[in-house]
Design a protein around this nucleic acid. Sequence first.
DNA 1: CCAGACGTTGTT
DNA 2: GTCTGG
DNA 3: CCAGACGTTGTT
DNA 4: GTCTGG
Length: 220
Amino acid sequence: MCGRFTLYSSLNNLKKVFDIDTVTCEIKANYNVAPGHEVYAIIRGSILKQNDNRLGKLHWGLVPSWAKDLSGASRLINARAETLQEKPSFRNALKKRRCLIIADGFYEWKEKQPWYCLPAAGSLFGFAGLWETWKENNKSAYHSCTIITTEASESIKEIHDRMPVILKPEIIKEWLNPATQEYEKLSMILKHGHVTRIRTYQVSKFVDSPKNNGPRCIKP
DNA sequence: CCAGACGTTGTT
DNA sequence: GTCTGG
DNA sequence: CCAGACGTTGTT
DNA sequence: GTCTGG
């Protein structure tokens, strides 16, 4: 799965790697992004009907629009690629509210020991994600997201049996395009358009507590 | 008809 | 919101 | 994902 | 043990 990750690259680096037209927030380095935290994601064609790639903040842990309150806000942090279409919490978002969640790397735990997973070829990760807006009368909207997961590739199978869907750079445009709505096409992107080569190394249990942060989290 | 659910993951 | 179960 | 909490009652 | 919070 993907229950903790990092984002510490500068905005300039993000712009070099991804196609970003508009930036709506400041980027703050985080070596221990936990559920409930704010994450940075690229969205195209939201309710604002903008036609550019917009980088903004979303809360990690998807809250469906029909949720009664925010009490379950950190529960839906992952969504299985294999069953997205059947799930009431994800189905509509798959069709209309896809996003790309930016990360430098992510953590996986094997027998209570944390490992850090990062791109084998340098650069950054773009996770396939879904987002949603939840609103209570008269209050401001709560924007949230979930990270789509798939079967682990050879590179990390020994550590864990699930991993986030890391989109190949050349397929990101199609994933973010609001016009892409056929399930067959989306399914193909998730199944065949993701990166499988990951580099891993063991890190200390410092990262275990969501209160801890800083470069020490990713120290081998 | 209304009520109630709606999600993923890991664990010995 | 939308589907399933009673 | 891991850490941390885990409760009731009456009172102005 | 199990749920909530980060």
